[in-house]
Amino acid sequence: MISAGCDVGSLTAKAVIIEGNRIISAKIIPVAETPRSSSEKVMTEALNTAGLTMDDINCCCSTGYGRHDIPFARMNMSEISCHGLGAFWLDRSIRTIIDIGGQDCKVISVDENGMMNDFIMNEKCAAGTGRSLEILSKAIGVDYKELGDIALPAKKTVEISSKCSIFMELDVMRRLYQEADIREIAYAINHAVAKRVYGLARTLKIHNDTCVTGGVSKNVSICNQLEEMLSITIKRLPLDPQLAGAVGAAVFAMKHGDLNKIEDESVKIPEEVCV
């Protein structure tokens, strides 16, 4: 049976089509005017790549902020459950998922079937999310993607107050205006974000088999710092971590379709979405 997952977030829309334990097609696009049009666009692209039509899909599950407005989805699940199941499906050893996205930061814990049994999500504050990294890296004139690579720990790390992601900029600018080394400031920014994530993660039981998903997972410096703070080794997912939510949704759709358990086989992923 063929199932699909569609994840419409605030910035990107993702669609994944799976059959059994094989990902047939996966697509990421920037959001269009409405969640509805984004979902239709990304789904059409994914279907075209796989050479399928909507009628071939047995069941589709939606997730993400736009999950309630997707016409072709038969069911919807929260992105927290989907991220959990998606990461688990891709690597069956995973029990904890740290997802650091644009606006949200979540820590998800799943059981031996990939079902979410606990989670924590950042409160009404964006400090410690991808967006704050983006704002801060712009302030010091460094490309957001570079921030992880140039970071270098100094003897004494600058403490950046984590009260507000915008006012973090004041601390950053102070160091910049004291003419501190840019690599050291970059490290401090990463440290501030890692510290916030650590604060969240600490309230859950963190399993040694942890993976990091979301855009920030590409930042080496944050991942390394998290490994150290939580004393774990972070596993990397075999595909673009942005797709984990859509994968999870597709697996939910598959489970919904014929209520069976997930097949205990290794997952086959097309090359273009591998990392």
Partner: peptide, 19 residues
């Protein structure tokens, strides 16, 4: 409704997505 600048952004994005 949100007084936080970063969340104001997400509110704007979702309002704008709603048309």
């Amino acid at each position: 409704t949100s007084s936080c600048a970063v969340f104001a952004e997400s509110e704007i994005v979702s309002l704008s997505n709603q048309g």
